[in-house]
Design a protein around this nucleic acid. Structure first.
Lengths: 148, 148
DNA sequence: TTGTAAATGCAATACTGTTGCATTTGTATT
DNA sequence: AATACAAATGCAACAGTATTGCATTTACAA
């Protein structure tokens, strides 16, 4: 959950791209370093404003290919805005293990991926077959709770 | 969960609007009858294509006011598309009890609100305070499971 | 160093959602 | 039933989000 646990050097980002047969371009390295530096998911608007010299279309394509490769996952917040977060090590190509809890802070709008939370299996009505669960919680994050 | 349980006549829709101090207009009655006729949430594009003679802006405003009044609730599917569903009787104005399970069928794209599913309380990390939970499951619905 | 496929940037387009304003409509009141 | 007024609708315009095609540039393997 903390930044240090995910901190990576440029070399490690390059390795990551190589591992997924992706060319090491400046734009991709910057997207990776921005997302790894945070412990929350990054919204599409945030990505765009910080990486504003990267073409918007390029950004979409980078995010899409990262998602396909299982490097990041997309999560919609409670307003339907796309947010992107680095996948935990359990994620694999085309099959994300994003069955963790997504916490939406109603104050700072942060989206936290709480990987450590395990939630129990949920029984579905007859006939329904689930291949994945995602739990969204909304409320105040640790930081915003203190300030209230 | 079945249609009959929610089936209503035009008179009942009129009562519903009156109860919430909303004028009984043709557009509103048609939106209500469309949503009550289904056992899945209705996507924004579906609403628009079926009710194509109602202005798009009017539709947004109707959906917004219905949501504010607690008549319907909005749920984003796993693609970030807005879907609308009739609230269960537990919903109240400005305070939805939409803590039920939303099931996304990956085949028919249907969004099912499984009100009868109760999921256990989930413990959050220290400092986080949740005021609401939503659980999304994706997979095959009962109908699509049979066809595979 | 060079050739080539991949990646990027740009233009154009479609979809989603919002705001302001003029017109129409529902309904409470006389 | 007629009227008066607020609410609801339709239209135009606009902003944000996402996709596609194509020309150019870049990464990297030979």
């Amino acid at each position: 959950m903390n930044n240090m646990a995910q901190a990576k050097s440029t070399y490690q980002f390059e390795d990551l791209l190589e591992k997924h047969q992706l060319k090491k371009t400046g734009a991709r390295l910057r997207v990776l370093s921005m997302m790894y530096a945070k412990n929350t998911a990054t919204s599409q608007p945030d990505l765009e404003s910080v990486l504003n010299d990267i073409d918007r279309v390029t950004l979409y394509r980078i995010l899409n290919v990262f998602e396909e490769k299982g490097i990041i996952h997309k999560v919609f917040d409670l307003n339907g805005t796309a947010n992107y977060a680095v996948c935990s090590s359990g994620c694999q190509e085309h099959h994300h293990h994003d069955e963790h809890l997504h916490f939406n802070c109603t104050n700072c709008k942060g989206v936290f991926c709480l990987n450590e939370i395990k939630f129990p299996t949920i029984n579905l009505p007859a006939g329904f077959h689930a291949d994945g669960f995602t739990v969204y919680a909304s409320g105040l994050c640790a930081k915003c709770s203190k300030m209230q």
